[in-house]
Design a protein around this nucleic acid. Structure first.
Lengths: 343, 343
DNA sequence: TTGTATGCGTTATCAA
DNA sequence: TTGATAACGCATACAA
C-alpha cells in the first residue's frame, strides 16, 4: 500500500501562495476573483495548479447551500427511452455546471418516495420527475415545501408544476389521420395503462381522433394493456383479435406494445401490413430495423430532457416566474408497417 | 410563493428531545445508538419523526470523510449495453447503502479526465471504470493516489486494478467453433477498434480460435472497424466483400457491427444465413427481433455491473486484499443468422 | 485589496 | 450515559 496523502485543501493553497484562506478562495472563484489583486490572484492560481488543488464540492455545497445538482427520477434506465432523455438532461445541465443525480423507481410509488427523500437529503437543488404515474402524494408534498420540480412526459390532474412533454394528442391524431388516409376504418387502439399519464392522454386522444373522422366506437375498439411491455401488448392483441377479428389497423400505445402486437399477428398468420397495419409510439431505437420497419410517432427524447433541464434551471434562477409549460411537436415516421387495407 | 422553512437539522431534533446534538446524533445512528439510554433514544427518534428530520448527507460526508458514493465512468449511456450494466451496479450498490454517480465520457480521453476529477471533487469513495480505451494516464495516476478502482469490461496492459469482464476469449472460441461445426472454413472477423480493450482481446482470440481449427490466415481475414457502430460495420463489410468475396461467414466484433454487416449484405443481395452466416457479440436488446434473429455471444451485463460493484465494495472494506479479478462465462446464443454454408 | 471570524450540519474526541 | 468542543473544507459578512 502506497502512502496516500490527503488531497490538498484551500488552506494548503493559501499557505503556499502566502495569503489567507479567504483570499485564496476569492482568487479561485471566478465570480469573486476580481476582488483580488491580479498579481496575488496569479500566485494563488499557480499554487493551486502546483498542488493539483480540486475544491471539495461537498464542503462548498454545505457552505453555499447550493449543490449544483439535480435529482432525476425515472422509472427504469433499461427502458430504451430513458437513456436518451437522461443524456438530454445531462447535456443541458452540464453546460451550466450542474450535474444529474439519477434514481430508478421501477414504477413503485414507495420506491419513488424513498428515492425522492434520498435525493433531498443529498441537497439537490431541484428535481426532474420523469416517472409515469398520473398522481403521487409526493407531488403535493414537494409543492408545499416549495421544492423546484419539473415534470417530464407526465402531467398531473392539477397543474402544480411546469411540464415538458411531447404533444401526444397531435401525435395520436397524426397516426390516426395516416391510417384513415390509407383507407382504414376499423382501427383498434392498444392503450397503455390509464393509471399512467401517457396511457391516459393517448387513449383520450385516440377517442377524439377517430370521432373527428366519424368512426363509430364499435369500429374503433380500445384494449388497455396492463403495462408498457411486449408481453402485455401480445396479450392485448390476442384479446383484440378474438373480439374484433375485423379490424384492419392497430395503433399501439407505444413501441413495446407494438412489438408484442407484431409478434402476436405473426402467431395468427396475419401479415403486417398486408392484413393489419400497425403504428407505434416513441420511435424507440431499432424499431426501424424490424421487419417490417415500424411506422411510429417520433418523440424527440433527447430534446425533451434538455428542455426539462433548461426549464428547471430557469426556475432556479428566478423562482417567481410563472410555471411555463413546454409542449414539443411530434411527427409521424412512416415506414413499412402501414399500408392500405385489403379491399 | 409559499414561505418555505428550511428543513430541520439535528439541532432542532435535539432541542425538541431535550438533549444535546451529540446525543441526538448518536441515537439516530444505528451504529452508535447502543451508546445511549434506551428511553432517551426513543425520545430522540420520535422527535426526529415528528420533525420529519432527514440527515444532511453532505454534512455527514464532510465530517466522516466517506460519501457512500461511487463514481461510474461509462462511454455513453445511450449505448444499449450500458443501461444494463449501470442497473447492475446500482442494484448492488444500493443494497449496501451506496449510490452511483454517473458520468459519460463519449470515448474522449480528455472528457474522461475531466469527469474523473469532477467525481473526485465530489469525494466519491471509489470508481468503476467501464470506459473502453486500453490505456489512459488516468489509470496510473489513480493507482498512485491509492484511489479504489475496479475496471469493467476493460483490461489494461499491466494489471493495476481488479477487473470484472466477460470471458471474451471463450466467447469468441464458442462462436468460431459453432461456425466451423456448421462447416464454414472461410470465416471473416470484423474487429472492433484495436485501441479498445474489447476490440483487441476479441481480435486476438479470433486469431487463436481459427488457428486451433487449422484455418489459414488467408481464409480468415480480419477487417478492423473504426468504431463500434453500424456505419463502421457496414463500411468494413463493404471492404471485406470487395477483397474476400469467397467468405461464407462473418464474426462481428459486436452486435452494432453485425447490424451494419447485415445491412450491407442486404445491399449486396446476399442472403443471411443462406449466403453468409453472421455472428454478433453482446446479445444486446432487440437483436432477437431482427430478421433473421441474430446468433450472438450473450454477455450478462447486469451481472457484470453487480460483480464490479461488489468487488469495489469489498475493496473499500479491506483495502489490502489482493486484487481479485472476475471473469464471467459467456455463452453463445444460437438463433437464425447462422446456417451451414452452401456447398 | 486583504484578513478575521463565523457558519453550513454532522460526527468524533475528550471530559464529566 | 451525556455534554462540551473541535473538526471536516469552504464561503462570506464584516472589519481593517
Amino acid at each position: 500500500m502506497i502512502a496516500v496523502d490527503k488531497p490538498p485543501t484551500i488552506a494548503d493553497v493559501a499557505r503556499l501562495a502566502g495569503v489567507h484562506k479567504a483570499t485564496a478562495s476569492r482568487a479561485l472563484n471566478p465570480r469573486t476573483s476580481d476582488q483580488v489583486n491580479a498579481a496575488t490572484a496569479r500566485r494563488v492560481v499557480s499554487a493551486a495548479k502546483r498542488l493539483r488543488y480540486q475544491p471539495n464540492t461537498l464542503a462548498r455545497s454545505l457552505s453555499t447551500r447550493r449543490s449544483a445538482t439535480i435529482g432525476v427520477l425515472i422509472p427504469d434506465l433499461t427502458n430504451p427511452l430513458f437513456p436518451l432523455v437522461v443524456r438530454g438532461i445531462e447535456d443541458a445541465l452540464s453546460e451550466q455546471g450542474y450535474t444529474a443525480l439519477l434514481a430508478n423507481t421501477d414504477n413503485d410509488p414507495e420506491r419513488e418516495q424513498t428515492q425522492f427523500e434520498a435525493l433531498l437529503s443529498r441537497k439537490v437543488d431541484g428535481f426532474i420527475l420523469a416517472t409515469a404515474r398520473r398522481d403521487h402524494p409526493l407531488l403535493r408534498q414537494a409543492h408545499q415545501q416549495g421544492t423546484a420540480v419539473v415534470l417530464l412526459n407526465r402531467s398531473t390532474d392539477e397543474p402544480l408544476f411546469p411540464v415538458v412533454a411531447g404533444d401526444d394528442a397531435a401525435g395520436v391524431h397524426a397516426a390516426v389521420d395516416h391510417l384513415v388516409a390509407l383507407g382504414h376504418r376499423r382501427i383498434a387502439h392498444l392503450s397503455g395503462p390509464t393509471a399512467m399519464s401517457t396511457g391516459f392522454t393517448r387513449g383520450r386522444a385516440f377517442r377524439s381522433a377517430v370521432a373527428a373522422h366519424s368512426l363509430a366506437p364499435a369500429e374503433t375498439p380500445v384494449v388497455e394493456c396492463g403495462s408498457y411491455t411486449e408481453d402485455s401488448g401480445a396479450a392485448a392483441t390476442r384479446r383484440l383479435l378474438a373480439e374484433h377479428p375485423e379490424i384492419t389497423a392497430i395503433f399501439a400505445g407505444n413501441d413495446m406494445i407494438a412489438l408484442g402486437a407484431l409478434q402476436e399477428l405473426r402467431e395468427h398468420r396475419l401479415d403486417c401490413p398486408g392484413d393489419v397495419s400497425l403504428v407505434g409510439f416513441n420511435d424507440m431505437r431499432f424499431v426501424d430495423k424490424l421487419v417490417p420497419p415500424l411506422t411510429t410517432v417520433h418523440v424527440p427524447h433527447h430534446q425533451l430532457g434538455a428542455e426539462a433541464a433548461q426549464l428547471l434551471l430557469d426556475q432556479l434562477d428566478s423562482p417567481d416566474r410563472p410555471a411555463k409549460t413546454v409542449s414539443l411537436p411530434l411527427d409521424l415516421v412512416i415506414r413499412q408497417s402501414t399500408a392500405p387495407p385489403r379491399s
